[in-house]
C-alpha cells in the first residue's frame, strides 16, 4: 500500500535555532496521526513544512497525488502546491479567524473552495453549502450570517465545513480544539471523528492536549526541541511511554 504522505529527513532551522530536525514518517490513507509536544517543540513548524506554508531546509514530503501518483510537495511548483492546498488538502487553524473570511457569509465561506475550482452555478454552490452546514451541525438558516455572529465553537465547525467541502484526502489541524470550552471541544471531537470515518480522511493533528489525541489519533509522535523523541500507536505511547520526556509529559497531566 502506498502511503498518502511520506516524509523523510525533514529539517527546518531558524538561523541557529532548530525548528524541527530530521523528521520522518509515513501516513497511510485513513490514518490520523497526532503530534504532541510543549510550546516550541517544533510541532507547528513541522505542520507548516508539511502543508507547504514553510520551506524546509532539507528533506522530502512525498504526497500521493490523485492524478500523478507520488510527488515531492517541496519541489513541486507553487501553483501546483496551492492547487493541492485548496482541493485535496485542508488546513484547520487553531484560531478560526485565520481560516475564515470574516467579512463573508457562512455560505460564501463554505462555497469559496468550490468556486475556486470552477463551480459556476449559484444554486448548486448554495445547496452544497447548506448541506455542509448541516453536517457540521450549524443551522442552515444561518447560511447568510457572517462568522463574526457565530460562537467560537460554531466558527471552528464552519472552518471545518469550508475545508472539507471539496472532499480533501488529507487534513492538517493545528490545535483544532484550542481555545474552546470543554463542552464544545467534545462536540467538535465527535464531529471530527465522524467525518474522518465517513470520508476516509487522513489527518495530521498538532495539539498539546493528550486527551484530544487519545480520542482522535491512531498514531502519535512526541516532539521535543525539534526532534521526534518517540512515535507509535497512540494508546501505547500514552500508557507505556518509553522516552523520559514522554513519561514526564504523560505523568504531568492533571487527572479529573
Amino acid at each position: 500500500m502506498t502511503p498518502l504522505l511520506s516524509v523523510s529527513g525533514l529539517s527546518k532551522h531558524y538561523g541557529a535555532q532548530i525548528g524541527c530536525a530530521d523528521v520522518s514518517f509515513d501516513l497511510f490513507p485513513g490514518e490520523v496521526m497526532g503530534i504532541v509536544g510543549e510550546s516550541g517543540s517544533g510541532k507547528s513548524t513541522l505542520l507548516s513544512c508539511l502543508a507547504g506554508h514553510l520551506v524546509p531546509d532539507s528533506g522530502a514530503v512525498i504526497y500521493d497525488t490523485r492524478a500523478e501518483g507520488p510527488r515531492d510537495v517541496i519541489t513541486m511548483s507553487e501553483p501546483e502546491r496551492r492547487m493541492l492546498g485548496r482541493t485535496d488538502w485542508a488546513f484547520v487553524h487553531q484560531n478560526p479567524r485565520d481560516g475564515l473570511r470574516m467579512a463573508v457569509s457562512a455560505g460564501g465561506n463554505v462555497g469559496e473552495r468550490l468556486m475556486a475550482t470552477g463551480a459556476r452555478h449559484y444554486g448548486d454552490i448554495r445547496a452544497a453549502a447548506e448541506d455542509w452546514l448541516g453536517r457540521v451541525e450549524i443551522d442552515p438558516r444561518r447560511i447568510d450570517d457572517r462568522p463574526a455572529t457565530f460562537s467560537g465553537g460554531m466558527q471552528q465547525r464552519l472552518q471545518i465545513a469550508r475545508n472539507l467541502v471539496t472532499g480533501p484526502r488529507l487534513v492538517f489541524m493545528d490545535e483544532p480544539t484550542g481555545g474552546l470550552d470543554v463542552s464544545v471541544q467534545a462536540r467538535l471531537l465527535d464531529l471530527l471523528r465522524g467525518l474522518v470515518r465517513q470520508m476516509g480522511l487522513s489527518a495530521v493533528i498538532v495539539t498539546h492536549d493528550l486527551a484530544v489525541v487519545r480520542l482522535l489519533a491512531d498514531r502519535l509522535m512526541v516532539m521535543k526541541g525539534g526532534f521526534v523523541v518517540e512515535a507509535g500507536l497512540t494508546d501505547q505511547v500514552l500508557d507505556d511511554p518509553q522516552h523520559g520526556y514522554t513519561q514526564l509529559l504523560v505523568s504531568s497531566v492533571l487527572q479529573v
Partner: peptide, 12 residues
C-alpha cells in the same frame, strides 16, 4: 475564485 465569492455574497 474570490471574485465569484463576491458575486455570491451579492446574490445571497
Amino acid at each position: 475564485g474570490l471574485m465569484h465569492v463576491r458575486l455570491y455574497e451579492d446574490i445571497a
